[in-house]
Computed example of a mutant assay.
Amino acid sequence: MAVLKFRVYWEEDDAVYRDVVIKHSQSFKDLNDIVLKSFEFDNKHKATFYRSNDHWQRGREITLEKYDKVYVKEPLIMEQTPIGTEIKDPNQKFIYIYDFNRNWTFLIELINVSKDENQKQAYPGVIRTEGLAPNQYGTRSLLGDKFVEVEEKYDLTKGEEGFGEEGEGGSGEESTEEEQTDTFGEEL
């Protein structure tokens, strides 16, 4: 059974990507679920795939369900569509849109096809993670929620007295040793 390896890029930053493996007989619903899991997104919103070409133009649509909108061509349904049926090119590409209000967009590219299954690997699965995933409902920082709490507590967005822009308020001359003290009167 063929195993497909896809690289899933976050459209906003191609340094943020996940490599996922999936069997060619598994459905687009399985691909949908592993993409969301790999980026730590919930599974509560509408989603759709588009078969794409090398120029990332949208082709045939593969939706989670049939939505109330006008379709150029009747969409395929993720649950009923095996991935292998939509691979038309050795470098097949798909565009994945999740949460139509926020319009999260991921670019998916087939990067490898293998005939051998790894018995230790669960399919579908994530085999490589690069970059910090975007936060689905807000901003994420390397410091996590702790920094947000500090920022809110001390309101770091307001300028405080004594702090100005570079080059502001000085005559350009170096200060004397006497002037080099901190706010507690101690020499620096």
Rank of each mutant, 00 (worst) to 15 (best):
K23N: 11
T181H: 12
S114G: 11
K37R: 14
E117T: 12
L36S: 07
Y9F: 13
N101G: 13
I127L: 08
K37G: 03
M78V: 05
E152Q: 15
H45P: 06
L132K: 11
H24L: 02
V21L: 09
N101K: 10
Q180L: 15
K46H: 08
K115S: 13
V148D: 15
T183M: 11
V21E: 13
P124V: 07
P134S: 07
K146Q: 10
E152R: 15
T105E: 15
K115N: 15
V126T: 14
G131F: 08
I34Q: 08
V72H: 04
P75W: 06
L64P: 00
V150P: 02
A122G: 05
K37E: 14
D13Q: 06
K29W: 09
E61P: 02
E177F: 12
G59D: 05
S52L: 02
E149F: 04
L156H: 07
L31R: 08
I62S: 06
K88P: 00
K115Q: 14
V3D: 09
R51M: 15
E149W: 02
Y154L: 12
K73T: 11
T176M: 02
Y17H: 10
Y67K: 01
N32L: 00
P134D: 10
V3M: 08
K66C: 01
Q57C: 03
L107S: 05
V3W: 07
R140P: 00
T129E: 08
T63Q: 02
V8T: 04
I34N: 03
D30V: 00
E40D: 14
E178K: 12
D54P: 00
Y9R: 01
M78S: 05
F28T: 06
E79F: 03
R51P: 00
W104S: 02
T63F: 09
K44V: 07
R102H: 09
K88D: 14
Q26T: 03
F100L: 07
